[in-house]
Write a protein that binds this DNA or RNA. Sequence first.
DNA 1: CTTCGGAACTGACACGTGTAACTTGCTCGT
DNA 2: ACGAGCAAGTTACACGTGTCAGTTCCGAAG
Lengths: 322, 322
Amino acid sequence: MNDVTPRRVTSADVARLAGVSRATVSYVLNNTPHQTISAGTRARVLDAAAGLGYAPSAAARTLRTGRSDVVLCLLPDWPIGHEVGALLANLSAELDRAGLTFLAHPGTRRPAGHLWRSINPAAVLSFRRFSAEETESMLGAGVAPVVAPLSRPDTPEGPQQRIGNLQAAHLAAAGHTRIGYAYPDDDRVRAFADPRLEGVRARCAELGLAPPLVRTVPLEPEPAAGVVREWRASGVTAVCAYNDEVALAVLAGRETPDGPAVIGVDDIPAARLATPALTTVTTDQAAVAVHLATAVLAAVHGEPEPVLDLACAIRVVARASA
Amino acid sequence: MNDVTPRRVTSADVARLAGVSRATVSYVLNNTPHQTISAGTRARVLDAAAGLGYAPSAAARTLRTGRSDVVLCLLPDWPIGHEVGALLANLSAELDRAGLTFLAHPGTRRPAGHLWRSINPAAVLSFRRFSAEETESMLGAGVAPVVAPLSRPDTPEGPQQRIGNLQAAHLAAAGHTRIGYAYPDDDRVRAFADPRLEGVRARCAELGLAPPLVRTVPLEPEPAAGVVREWRASGVTAVCAYNDEVALAVLAGRETPDGPAVIGVDDIPAARLATPALTTVTTDQAAVAVHLATAVLAAVHGEPEPVLDLACAIRVVARASA
DNA sequence: CTTCGGAACTGACACGTGTAACTTGCTCGT
DNA sequence: ACGAGCAAGTTACACGTGTCAGTTCCGAAG
C-alpha cells in the first residue's frame, strides 16, 4: 500500500540516496563558491537529484534567503495588445536565461503593495512611475523597483518622444507642412500619448512647421470622419496617430482616397492589411526586451541602471498611407 | 541611529505589540474556526497589525501549508492579442475577489514542470491539454490542473466549434451556399483553428451545403488576393475566417468591392474600422473570465468541474462585410 | 465543596532550505 | 616527528508561519 499523499521530494531525500549530508547536496546543486566537493560525490548527488526528479521548494528557498527569483511585472490596466504581448514573451525568455522567473500580474485596480510584500520578488517591473513612498518601501524590503524606460515622461529624449519625432520627420520629408495629431480616446494611455505628441511638437518646431493640430479620434468611423473634415478644412494634409488603431480610424474616416496621409505606431498585423497599407513606426520588441532584462538584472544586483540607447530599435515602416 | 536593514515586520512583532502570543495573532488574522478569541483581544491584534503594516510572508505560509494562493497561468507561445489580454485582466480581477493571486507566465518553450514544482501554486491554468504524466504529477503534488475549456478539441459541442457554427449560420442566412474557410498561416494556433473549422463543416452539413473550401491565407495582401481569386473561380461567395486578422487579409485580397462576403472572429478594434466594416463573432471575455474563475475555484477546492454553458457568451456582430 | 467543561490563550513543533561554524583525515614542509 | 594547512564533509541554526496539544481561569452543575 503506497502513501495516499506522495510527499514532495526534498533535498534530504537526495542526500539519503546519495549517502551524503543535506548540506553537501545544497553545496553541489547551487555550486557554492569556496566549497570543495570531490568529483565522485558531486556526480552521485547530481545523479540522485536527477533520478528523484528533485526540484527545490521556491517557498523554502525564499524564506531562507529572504528573496525569491521572481521578477514581478505589474501590468497596467490599459488594454494589452499585440505588441505588449510580444514584449512580455521576449522579456520572459530573456530573464529565464538569467535564472529569473518572470511573472505578470494583470492590473487589479487596488495598490499592489500587498502583492510584492508577500511574494518577496527580486524586482518589480512596472510601466508607471512608483510613488516616493512606494519606492522607499520597496527598497527597504530589499525589492528592486524598475520602471520600464518606455514610460518615462520625464526624459525629453525618451523612446516615446522619439516615436513622435520619427512620425513627424517622415511626413515632413514627404513634403507635408501642416500636420495633425490623432489623440486617443482613452484616458488610460495618456502616459504614452503625451510624450509621443511632445515628440511630434518638437520635431515640427525644429523643422519650422506649425505645431500639430491635435484632435481626439474615437475608434468609430463616423466620429473619425468628422475630425478628418475638420482637419481638411484647416489645411492639414497629414496626420500622426497615437496608435495603429487610431490611425485606422483616421483612414476609415477619409471619405475620399485623397484624404490626409496617415502614419501610426506599433505595426499591428492589421496595419499592412489596411487600404491603403498603413505606414507606421515599429519598435523591435526583442531589442526592448533585452534592454529591459539588463535593466532588471542591474537593479537586482544593486548596480546602477545601464544607459542603453533604444533609439536604434525604433524605425519607420513605409507603406502606402504616407 | 536606525537599523541599516529595516527588517520585515513579522507576526511576532504584532504579537509583541498587542501583548499576546503569536498563535493568537495567527488565529485572529486568519479567523480560524473553532477558536474563541475575546472581542478585546481581537481588536488589539487587528489594530497592531494595521499599525505596523503587517503583511504575512507568502513564502513562509506556503512552506507551512504546502500550498500557495497563487493561480499560475501558463501562457501559450502563440501571439497574445487584444482578446487574451482582456481575458487575463478579467480573470485576475475575478480570482482576486476569491482571495487568489493570479500570475501569468509567458511561455518559455521548455516544459513548465520546474515552474509549478517550485512555486507550489493552488492551480495551474493552461490553454493546452496536459499530458497524462503531467496531470498525474500535478495531482500527486496537490496542484489542481485546469485546462481552459476554450481549448478542448475533444468536445464536439465546445465553444470553438460553436464559433464556427455561428459563422456558417450567419453566412447561410444571408443566402450564401458556397462557403470558403480562411485557415491561418501559423501552426501554433491549430488547436483553435481546427475545432472552429469543424464547427463550420458541421453546420454546412446540417444545412445541406457543400463542405467549406479550405485555403490557408497569409497575412499579406498579395498572397491573399491569389486565394480570393481561387475562391471566386470555384464559385465561393462567402468566407469564414479563423480570425479577424485573417478576415482583414481576405478583405485586402478582394480586388473588386463585390468580392466574397467575410466574417471573422474576435471583434478586434480594427474590425469596425475596416472597409467594409467587418462582421465578426465576438466572445464576452468578462463572462468567460467568470466561467474560468469558477472552474479554477472548483478545482482548488477539489470539487468536480461545474458544467457551465458558454454558448450565450458567443454572438455575431453583424456589420457590412457579410 | 468538589468537579467538570468550556472560554481564552500559550508553548512548541514542523515545513525545506542556505550557510556559518565545526570536525576529520591527510599531505607536506621543517 | 610534529604541527600547519587544506580538502571534504557534517552539524546546527534561522527564516516566518499554521496548528496541535496543553494550560489556566472561571462559572455552573452536582
